[in-house]
């Protein structure tokens, strides 16, 4: 009898645990389906351009021809194919195909942390005795641009495998909904509640699809840059404290946000204003 109760308790507990992220994702997706009934879910990978005809035309012109991220992809390929001093190379860490972006960020149970693609690249270098790349380094951006390009079309496939992973996911989720800064905005204020609205002439994109296209060339940056740089800018905008590239806060945030976009096809690198 006692056993049965414990077992029942255990099952409900674990059920609710595993159902959490998936329930969140369903609600997230339904929110945008309801808000933008005429826009196919997959369209949100194009950010604000899914919601604004005029801006989309300008953007398509920029994307055709010689898009400004092309060099980064080529340079990244060359770096990917180079051998380390010990004779190994990235394919020894990542497998034969560089089309792996859909699995990142992933939960690393051994290290007890969320591993983004950038962190995995550095972990690979470290285990082969190479020096770590700075996260603002062009080589890092180029390598991730190449992996993103090779992974185009792959549906995002993020997993939350255990309790510890779930804790990291929950941290990222809490960050997303936490109001912060002098202006008192949460990420969700702008990219859920006000998504589709205009802030001045800026169309606010939906949170769904936010992670599908990084690194991205931004005219404002005049270079290809990573997702966490965009996080920093959005934190700055509301006069909130920005965290460092690849900080635990941003890795957990990316983990949550990527899970929300599970199933959407990757389309990076791309261009944004």
């Amino acid at each position: 009898m006692k056993h049965a109760v414990t077992l029942a308790l255990f099952t409900t507990l674990s059920l609710s645990v595993w159902a959490g992220p998936e329930e969140d994702r369903t609600a997230f997706v339904q929110f945008f389906e309801k808000r933008f009934p005429s826009i196919a879910l997959e369209e949100h990978v194009n950010g604000a351009y899914a919601l604004d005809e005029d801006k989309r035309k300008q953007w398509e012109a920029l994307e055709s021809g010689f898009p400004p991220y092309e060099d980064a992809v080529f340079d990244g390929e060359a770096l990917w194919d180079e051998s380390f001093a010990n004779g190994a190379s990235y394919s020894d860490c990542f497998g034969d195909s560089p089309a792996v972006k859909q699995h990142y960020p992933l939960w690393d149970a051994e290290r007890g942390g969320v591993v983004t693609l950038e962190l995995a690249i550095n972990n690979c270098r470290e285990s082969n005795g190479e020096k770590l790349l700075d996260y603002t380094d062009y080589a890092m951006v180029a390598l991730s641009a190449y992996v993103a390009f090779e992974s185009r079309g792959e549906p995002i496939a993020i997993e939350v495998p255990d309790q510890a992973a779930l804790a990291a996911y929950e941290e990222g989720k809490a960050f997303y909904y936490q109001r912060r800064g002098q202006l008192n905005f949460a990420c969700s204020s702008c990219h859920l509640e006000m998504a589709g609205n205009k802030l001045r002439s800026e169309r606010l994109s939906a949170a769904l699809g936010h992670v599908t296209h990084w690194p991205t060339y931004r005219s404002k940056w005049d270079e290809v840059g990573p997702l966490h740089k965009r996080f920093m800018e959005c934190n700055d905008q509301v006069k909130a404290k920005a965290f460092e590239l690849q900080s635990e806060e941003y890795r957990n945030l990316e983990y949550f946000l990527s899970y929300m976009s599970n199933g959407l096809p990757l389309n990076g690198p791309t261009t944004r204003k």
Binding site: N197, K198, L199, R200, S201
Partner: peptide
Amino acid sequence: CFSCHMAEGAEQPGNS
């Protein structure tokens, strides 16, 4: 304020 509010004299007002 004009990032969210339309008002007389506002340039490129938003609509939140």
